[in-house]
């Protein structure tokens, strides 16, 4: 996280958050530049997903500054202001959460037309382009229930992109998928990052994180332990905890990733 703060699209400063008595974030500082791909890794319960939810105001921290694309997220008091922010920040969830009563195409078209008031014809055209991008053109008229997990997740990505977001948050998007379909989803995300979309990923796919990230952030117990280029985090860190975490995982490939994480 080099560069000047001018190009920063997301900036968290000393963010503290607790749910009841449980402290989840204990002082997070994080700067993400436009066009960057950042992976957040770390053991379960370390606050990775909560960081994402702070960024698009799904949860509000008790203290600290959060700036997203020029908006002081921590100072938003009205739900309507948070909604304005969420229109500009896409999020993709672990469980895809497609709308089961709508076709794939309608899932993608719904939010831009109803929420942003976009033109229907133009949005349908955009939706078809996005479906092509996620390689699901032939499924436009299918219902979510007829698709595999990987296909549903790719539709969810297309749905988020249809809002033309300034950045996209990926919250463990492959964790609910069977190993055979993980690849097709990662492929789509890789394309997206190559196209220059600012992306923040919470992920357990270490090899993928190493391959596509500009920066890797390692969190544990609500704190950022270390961050830097993937090369540094995965191969030349001095921190014994990260070395243990990464080393225990990367050796055995995907299977080991799963076991090590105890999902």
């Amino acid at each position: 996280m080099s560069a000047s703060t001018d190009s920063a699209i997301v900036k968290l400063e000393n963010v503290h958050l607790s749910f009841g008595q449980t402290q989840v974030l204990k002082g997070i500082d994080l700067t993400i530049n436009k066009g960057d791909a950042v992976s957040i890794i770390g053991p379960s319960g370390s606050g990775k997903s909560t960081i994402l939810r702070c960024i698009n105001a799904l949860v509000t921290p008790q203290s600290g500054k959060i700036t997203v694309a020029g908006t002081r997220v921590d100072q938003l008091t009205k739900e309507s202001e948070r909604i304005q922010l969420r229109k500009r920040v896409g999020i993709v969830f672990q469980q895809y959460n497609l709308f089961p009563h709508l076709t794939v195409l309608d899932n993608i078209v719904l939010a831009p037309t109803r929420i942003l008031g976009a033109d229907k014809t133009a949005t349908v055209k955009l939706a078809r382009e996005l479906l092509e991008k996620v390689r699901l053109s032939e499924k436009a008229d299918a219902y979510p229930g007829q698709l595999s997990g990987g296909q549903q997740q790719r539709v969810a990505i297309a749905r988020a992109l249809a809002m033309k977001p300034e950045l996209v948050l990926f919250d463990e998007v492959t964790s609910a998928l069977d190993p055979e379909t993980v690849g097709e989803v990662l492929w789509v995300i890789r394309d997206l990052i190559r196209d220059g979309m600012t992306s923040i990923l919470v992920t357990h796919e270490m090899r993928f994180a190493e391959e596509i990230s500009d920066t890797v952030v390692f969190t544990e117990n609500g704190k950022i332990v270390d961050y830097g280029p993937p090369q540094q985090i995965f191969h030349s860190t001095d921190n014994p905890r990260i070395r243990q975490f990464v080393g225990g995982l990367s050796g055995g490939g995907r299977g080991a990733v799963r076991d090590g994480e105890g999902i």
């Binding site: 799904l58 969420r86 969830f93 709308f99 109803r114």
Partner: peptide
Amino acid sequence: TTQWEATKGLGFSRLQ
């Protein structure tokens, strides 16, 4: 509740 979450993430208001 994940359906509500998905709509929230896309910028829907509660009524929408």
